[in-house]
Design a protein around this nucleic acid. Structure first.
Length: 241
RNA sequence: AUCGGACAUGGACGCUUC
């Protein structure tokens, strides 16, 4: 695209000028490439930054892990994940969350569950050693969405309870993922229970949550309820998109 | 000297691309 060309020529200009790119500059470039599915080029830039004396950090490696996950190359993603530890750049919760998403994307549910369980043990064992390395809202959001999309609704609900009992507040995406899963499988009563529950916990539905519910009711032949929710959403000040 | 700026991860439907 035009913007991408602009980014590239700016980068080249920078290399040729007295302003040296630093690690953040390289990270931004690698992220751009990874988002576009060009993780191999991202790896080239990683090599370049090392050659030019800018040390990659955990963000650099997590970005590359995401790049591989996006194109379904989970082996390569795991390889980078293991590699970074050897270089004493420790994976953090973002790195793990990225891998979890990649595993679910390939329907490797067992692997995701086992990484998730390792993550929880890690937290117990190492305490604060790895800093932010316990599951967070995004971890649970990723797990719950992945489990729902693979049809493991009961397991997803277990994780919902688990996160609450471990003091991590379910956020909008967690409720949204679970409600969407329930809707897609026809559990409309349960979906509405969660709609109420989220509000009583101070989390308010947005256009995504309403869309899941409206779609669900419509598919179950309950057009009345679908229409009622559409009106309620508008009354609540959420504009349909 | 101190303080201030840039980078990575999760949700519906459709569209685009593969």
């Amino acid at each position: 695209s035009g913007m991408e060309e602009d980014a590239k020529s700016l980068f080249v200009e920078m290399i040729n000028s007295s302003v040296r790119p630093n690690f953040v500059t390289y990270n931004v470039l690698i992220n751009l490439l990874c988002k576009k599915g060009k993780v191999e080029q991202g790896m080239e830039v990683l090599k370049m930054m090392i050659e030019r004396g800018e040390p990659p950090n955990v963000i650099t490696y997590s970005t590359i892990v995401d790049g591989y996950c996006r194109v379904g190359k989970i082996e390569e993603a795991m390889g980078v994940y293991k590699d970074m530890s050897c270089k004493e750049i420790y994976p953090n919760i973002v790195t793990i969350n990225t891998l979890l998403k990649g595993l679910f994307h390939l329907r490797k549910v067992e692997d995701a569950l086992s990484l998730f369980s390792d993550l929880k043990k890690m937290e117990l064992k190492d305490g604060n050693k790895l800093g932010d390395c316990g599951p967070d809202q995004i971890t649970y959001g990723t797990m719950i969405d992945g489990l729902c999309k693979d049809g493991h609704l009961e397991r997803a609900e277990q994780l919902f309870s688990e996160m609450q009992s471990s003091g991590i507040d379910p956020d909008l995406v967690v409720y949204s993922s679970l409600i969407d899963g329930l809707c897609k499988n026809g559990y409309m009563d349960k979906a509405e229970e969660f709609l109420l529950k989220m509000q009583s916990n101070g989390v308010y539905p947005d256009v995504v949550v309403y869309s899941s519910l409206i779609d669900g009711f419509y598919h179950c032949g309950n057009e009345e309820e679908a229409k009622r929710l559409l009106e309620k959403m508008i009354v609540d000040g959420i504009s349909p998109n």
